[in-house]
Each structure stands twice: as C-alpha cells, then as structure tokens.
C-alpha cells in the first residue's frame, strides 16, 4: 500500500514562513514539548503553545490574530531551547503579534504601555515618585535619572508605520 503523508499547510502558514523567525514552522511535528515546558500552560487552561501553532498550521488566521493568546507568551524561550525541530513558538508568536498589530488588534494594556514610552522616552516616568527620589538621595544615588524624550520624539511618528 502506498504510504500517505499529511503535510499540514495553509496560506497563514505560508505567510508566517515567509517572515524571519517563522521559516521552519512547517517542521513542527506537534509533539507538545513546548506545551509541556511552558509555565503559562501549567497554570492557564487556555494557553497551549502547541495548539496555537496547530491553529496557524491549519490556517485559522482570523481566530489567531484576534485572540489574546499570542500575547500570553512571556518569551521565556524554554520551548525554543527544547524544541527538537528547531521551531521557536516564542518567535512565531512574536510574528503573530506583529501581524495582529498591523491589523489593529493590540490589547489595550500593551497599546497604553507603548503610548507611555513614545510620550516620555521610557515606560516608568510617571511612576518615578518623590518617595523613590528621597530613597535614592538617601543612598547617595543621582536623583535626576537623565532620561528624556528627545530621541523618541524624533522617531515616534515611525512606530507602527506612523500610527
């Protein structure tokens, strides 16, 4: 009998495979080592890196891009180190988030954080309080952190293609 193979592929897979970091997605054999290694998967019912890769392989583009699941990856990259096929779920989800962002699906917390960075030059300007200034002074550390927004003001317009 002729042996048959199932080679999972979809236009969404092609799209990811064309991007740097996503090239080898089709090598995924769905072994689940990534899920078994993932701390997020250990505590969250919803998050399974293997399953998310599977959804890409079978072409659930809209579902994946609109989902908050790719944003749950902490990029700890244990999966990447362990995957025997050289696939990096962390890189793939980063590409998925980039596509999602281009199409306007950015979870609010991330959008807000980016806005802060692009406004102040760094994320924590607003939370750098007098109390911390006092503690720094007490320890002989510089109170003026010398961060500023000069640089981000110049490139701000470019971030996310001028959003």
């Amino acid at each position: 009998m002729k042996r048959e193979y199932h080679i999972p592929t979809s236009s969404f897979t092609e799209e990811i495979a064309a991007l740097s970091g996503g090239e080898v997605i089709e090598k995924c054999i769905q072994c689940g080592i990534c899920t078994a290694s993932c701390e997020v998967a250990r505590v969250s019912e919803r998050y399974h890196p293997r399953r998310l890769i599977q959804k890409i392989l079978i072409g659930k583009r809209k579902e994946v891009l609109e989902s908050d699941l790719p944003w749950l990856c902490m990029t700890c990259r244990l999966c990447e180190e362990r995957c025997q096929e050289g696939v990096s779920p962390a890189d793939i989800f980063q590409l998925v988030r980039a596509l999602a962002a281009k199409e306007g699906f950015v979870p609010k917390v991330f959008a807000n954080a980016v806005d802060l960075v692009l406004r102040d030059g760094w994320l924590l300007a607003a939370s750098y309080s007098d109390f911390i200034e006092d503690e720094r002074e007490g320890m002989g550390l510089d109170v003026d952190l010398h961060w500023d927004d000069t640089f981000v003001q110049r490139l701000k317009a470019m971030f996310l293609g001028g959003a």
Binding site: T75, Q94, R97, A98, V117, W122, W147, V152, L160
Partner: peptide, 17 residues
C-alpha cells in the same frame, strides 16, 4: 540620557523601530 531599550513586547509591535 538613556532611552527605553524597547523590550520584546515592543519589538513584537514594530521590530525595526
């Protein structure tokens, strides 16, 4: 005048910038 290092979650939004 250190600027934000643009960590992974920013990289995933706009890698080049």
């Amino acid at each position: 005048n250190e600027t934000c290092c643009a960590p992974f979650w920013m990289q995933s939004l706009d890698f080049t910038t």
